[in-house]
Design a protein around this nucleic acid. Structure first.
Length: 199
DNA sequence: CTGGCGATTCTC
DNA sequence: AGAATCGCCAGA
């Protein structure tokens, strides 16, 4: 397998990328331990015009700064004071589009993932939900604004291909405040995979 | 400076 | 159903 190249992420079609990233494999290396998961669920945030995005209206602050970088970087932030959430920044510089990774299927370093989550890898809740993904793969704020083709965190192309029939789409989770954008069907997941936050 | 709240999860 | 828990942002 090969790491996805920076050009892959510089596509401005975040709706396409959110679906195309399903089946790709997210790796992290922390304390010399490598863990990885197959991406099974994503959400697309389409930038300045998206009322559900942290970058709505072009809001550029210390927190959202990562999203304004060129595609191929990470955006990690803390939610509810407890949970880390991991996003893939896409498109070009100053176009703050991103893909939130909401669930993965454990792929490598299973024993490490199991001890981080204190449950067996066969339990589908081990890495379903954006906070759980980060805990399973050891992602914290130190992983913010990192290039996704580096040595700490990266994504590989598994070669898996899916058709539209394999992918379900629903409104995004937890964005009821986003007015008319709350209902847009920009959450995507693999229908046949158990490791999804909710069907 | 201060107050309210969030792209959530776990436990009761 | 409710708690945990804190950084971020808006408003004063």
């Amino acid at each position: 397998m090969v790491k996805l190249k920076p050009e892959y992420y510089q596509n401005s079609d975040v709706i396409f990328l959110a679906q195309d990233l399903l089946g790709k494999i997210l790796f992290t290396k922390k304390n010399e331990e490598i863990t990885a998961g197959i991406i099974t669920e994503t959400e697309a945030y389409f930038g300045e015009a998206d009322k559900a995005s942290h970058a709505y209206g072009g809001l550029r602050t210390l927190r959202t700064e990562a999203m304004f970088q060129t595609g191929g970087y990470s955006y990690v932030y803390l939610c509810y004071g407890i949970h880390h959430l991991f996003n893939i920044v896409v498109s070009q510089e100053n176009d703050p589009k991103s893909v939130l990774v909401r669930a993965v299927e454990p792929y490598e370093g299973l024993s490490v993932i199991e001890s981080r989550r204190n449950r067996p890898a066969s339990d589908k809740t081990i890495s379903s939900g954006p906070g759980s993904v980060c805990k399973a793969l050891g992602i914290d704020m130190k992983f913010n604004k990192k290039p996704l083709n580096g040595e700490e965190i990266w994504i590989e192309d598994s070669g898996l291909q899916y058709s539209q029939d394999d992918i379900a789409s629903t409104p995004r989770i937890g964005v009821a405040y986003a007015g008319e954008h709350a209902l847009l069907p920009f959450r995507f997941y693999l229908k046949k995979n158990r490791y999804v936050s909710k069907k």
